[in-house]
Design a protein around this nucleic acid. Structure first.
Lengths: 209, 209
DNA sequence: GTCTATAGACGGATAGAC
DNA sequence: GTCTATCCGTCTATAGAC
């Protein structure tokens, strides 16, 4: 969906360099990296602007606030989850369906590596309810919906915990082991295909399918 | 260890009310709650002081900086992990030992609910390397050590992922389902004993013991 | 679409009285 | 051990020129 790619449809110039409307996307990309590394609150707009070689004021041409930068990024991925939820609800319940749901869940995380890394490391900032402001906490309800689809109604605690853990293990497992991280030698960086099968196997066991 | 309890050995007065040295612990307790709810960077010392009915300056009598408040809290729990690692290394490798390690890991998390909630939600702030500063990121090496003890040397990717997931599922599972949280009705708040057995069962399966 | 300049608020931290 | 008062830095956000 939006992975450091264009979203406004502007053309490139003759030499193939990026032009015009992709500044917006570049801001989001840089902001996301810094937010994930240093934290949302700890990263200033000045820092983002500097890394892009522009000034703060330029950012405000593209986004009306700091929060707005994040909103624009996360929306796409929440929409993908919503689509997955709708799809899952339309399928007949079966072990094959469950595995397919988990597989699609993993693919969403794969496609939005930086975004999910950001969300994982800034949970407090996402929830942040300073003075009753809502902010961008919208993951929980999606997770609840997916778990509900996978467990069916009136699930036991055991089932709920296992299914929730299955999804979050997929999520975390991918972020933790498939990393272009600049940190030490642990955890080992895994081959994507191998990691995928390992993670899917775990999830299947936890789901009991 | 330090759970809103005294640590300076000061006496209480005749009526049993708290006195003297426990101000330090009360600061840590309140700070931890706010840090977990709103985020470390988003919570100001003014806010902490206000909730305690004192002024910012008073906090600086007990702690030399904002970071110092957190350091004092987390140290105890990292020490508990270190003790667990030492203990695990001294045991003969066996399925029973593995289960015992996981059980003790869970007990540490149980004992430090607020602390671990804080750490989970403020990963970015804990890692925060603004200008090369180290800060209080010390969980990873402990996790690596524990995983190493549980897998033995030269473990496959599959084993490493499963064991890591086992520990983190215990961690997350407890925080996620055993909650005095003020948020909606999901996830359901679980009975501690039941949750413990569910979580331990999952971990055992992932460990393959 | 990007700039300079600045407003306006709030942050962490310190000095020194009591 | 807690307070008042204050310093100084940085932050988000805006106004207005080019």
């Amino acid at each position: 969906m939006s992975e450091a790619a264009e979203d406004t449809g502007h053309a490139t110039d003759g030499s193939g360099r990026r032009r015009g409307g992709d500044t917006r996307a570049r801001i989001q990309q840089v902001a996301l990296e810094l937010f994930a590394e240093q934290g949302y609150e700890a990263t200033s707009l000045r820092e983002i602007a500097e890394r892009l070689g522009v000034t703060k004021a330029a950012l405000y041409y593209h986004f009306k606030s700091k929060e707005d930068i994040v909103l624009g990024i996360t929306e796409d991925y929440f929409a993908e989850f919503d689509a997955l939820i709708d799809w899952a609800r339309a399928q007949p319940p079966s072990p094959a369906t469950s595995r397919e749901v988990v597989g699609r869940y993993l693919d969403i995380v794969r496609g939005g590596y930086e975004v999910f890394r950001f969300m994982e490391r800034n949970q407090a900032a996402m929830r942040g309810s300073e003075g009753g402001k809502h902010r961008f906490e919208q993951f929980r309800p999606r997770l609840e919906a997916l778990v509900g689809v996978l467990t069916g109604q009136d699930a036991s605690l055991r089932t709920t915990v296992r299914v929730t853990t299955a999804l979050l293990s997929v999520n975390f497992g991918w972020l933790f082991f498939c990393h272009p991280e600049n940190l030490g030698d642990w955890p080992p960086s895994a081959d994507p295909d191998e990691l995928r099968s390992v993670v899917m196997e775990m999830a299947s066991e936890l789901l009991g399918v």
